[in-house]
Structure formats: structure tokens, C-alpha cells
Amino acid sequence: MNFEIKKAVSQDKKKLLLENPEKKDSIAVGLSKETEVTLKGDVGDFVGALNNGARIEIRGNTGRYVGNNMTSGEILVRGSAEDGVGFGIYEGTIIIYGDAGDAVGQLNKGGTIIIVGDMGNLAGLYMLSGDIVVTGDAGLDTGDWMIGGNIYVGGNFKPGTNALINELSFADKQKLAELFKKYSIKEDIGNFKKIEHQELRPFYGENDGEVDGEDL
């Protein structure tokens, strides 16, 4: 199936529709042209991985690691997703119009991930930049060891190590309003809390930079 997609893209076909993907893994991987791909039905793992410009719409549920390490483009899931949504994403946007499992946006380096529902534990672990938005509840250790970026939660959550909870600034509210309008999300922005990093270098102690009592 992925071979057929890449063949069509090489022939400059801009819009592709694939029905009954049968929960197959690694569909629409590594697309680098501005192409619209629609998958009607449930899909497997790693769909849209390494996406670099395509708009991928999944009209069903997806397995693990949708949009893994993508660098640009959009992925819209009209259902729920399993673990690892947007793992290692560099740029681009992933929208899940349902619930998501654990490990959303871990190692996020600059992408935008929106969960229009609830998500599981350890979202945003080690994230460096970018945004994660969840309109419902988040799980345990949200933002654990995060170094940069922002996590916006509309429901309940339990923050992880180095996660600092703040009220939304005017810029935050404006950002969420624009995202919600663009992706037809109806939520009250006033309910959201912002999670960001507490320390820039959370892995180092007070003696950072010293060896045998001498400063480096």
C-alpha cells in the first residue's frame, strides 16, 4: 500500500484516497511532497512517520506512533490513537479527534500535537520544544523531565518532575484560540492550565561543572 502511495505521488497526483487499510502498519511513510492522503478505516502503527509536507487524514483509529519523527505537514485522525502520538516530532501538526494512549509527544522538538479528548501517562517526557494540547484529562507524570515547550491541559492531570504549572498568558490564549478555530475545536480556553519546565538543566545538581573540587 505504501508503494502505491509513493508511486502516485511520483506521478504528481495531489489527492489520494485509500479505503479499507486493514490496520496495516507504516502507511504513508516518508512523504515529502505537498500531497493529500485520505485513509478510510482503522490503521496500524507508524502511519505518517517521517512525514515531510503531506496532509494525511485518517477516518478511523490509529495504532502506535502515528506521525513518528515527522518534520512538517499535517496528520488528522478522526478517531482515537494508541501510544506514542508524535514521538520525536520536529515540526508539523497532529490532531487526534478522540483519545490517545500513553507517551504523547515524548521528545517533541517543535511540533504541535492536539488531543481532542483524554490522553494517558507520561505525555511530553523529555520534550524540548513545541506544544501539546489536550482538551480533556491527562495522566500521571505529565511533562516529566520536560526541558522546553508547553503543555496545555483542559482537564485533570498529575505533573511530573520539573513540570511547573501556570495560568495562561494572553499569548497562550491567543495561540489556543487560533488553533481551535483552525481545527474546529469547541472548548472553553478559560479551563486550561499551562505546564512548562521548571529548570532549564534539571539533570544536573548544584555541583554541575566541577571535577574533584575544581571548576571546569
Rank of each mutant, 00 (worst) to 15 (best):
Y65G: 01
Y65M: 13
Y65D: 12
Y65P: 01
Y65F: 15
V66H: 00
V66L: 11
V66W: 00
V66T: 15
G67E: 05
G67W: 00
G67D: 03
G67Q: 03
N68Q: 13
N68Y: 13
N68K: 12
N68G: 03
N68C: 10
N69R: 14
N69M: 14
N69S: 15
N69C: 12
N69T: 13
N69K: 14
N69A: 15
N69Q: 15
N69I: 13
M70I: 09
M70D: 08
M70K: 04
M70S: 09
M70L: 13
M70C: 08
T71Y: 12
T71D: 11
T71G: 12
T71M: 14
S72F: 03
S72R: 12
S72E: 11
S72I: 06
G73C: 10
G73R: 04
E74D: 14
E74A: 08
E74Q: 14
E74P: 04
E74S: 11
E74L: 12
I75N: 02
I75R: 05
I75C: 07
I75L: 11
I75S: 03
I75Q: 06
I75W: 05
I75K: 02
I75M: 08
I75G: 03
L76C: 05
L76Y: 06
V77C: 09
V77I: 15
V77S: 05
V77H: 03
R78L: 13
R78N: 14
R78K: 15
R78P: 00
R78F: 15
R78A: 12
R78E: 15
R78T: 08
R78C: 11
G79V: 04
G79Y: 02
G79Q: 08
G79S: 12
G79A: 11
G79E: 05
S80N: 15
A81T: 09
A81F: 01
A81E: 04
A81V: 09
E82A: 12
E82V: 01
E82T: 04
D83N: 15
D83K: 06
G84H: 02
G84K: 02
G84E: 02
V85P: 01
V85F: 05
G86S: 12
G86W: 04
G86H: 06
G86D: 08
G86P: 10
F87I: 09
F87A: 06
F87W: 12
F87K: 05
F87E: 06
F87G: 01
G88P: 06
G88Q: 07
G88R: 03
G88Y: 03
I89G: 00
I89E: 00
I89Q: 01
I89S: 01
I89R: 00
I89Y: 00
I89V: 12
I89L: 07
I89W: 00
Y90I: 13
Y90T: 14
Y90W: 13
Y90N: 14
Y90Q: 14
E91H: 12
G92I: 04
G92R: 00
G92C: 06
G92E: 07
G92L: 01
T93S: 10
T93C: 10
I94M: 10
I94C: 10
I94G: 02
I94R: 04
I94Y: 03
I94L: 13
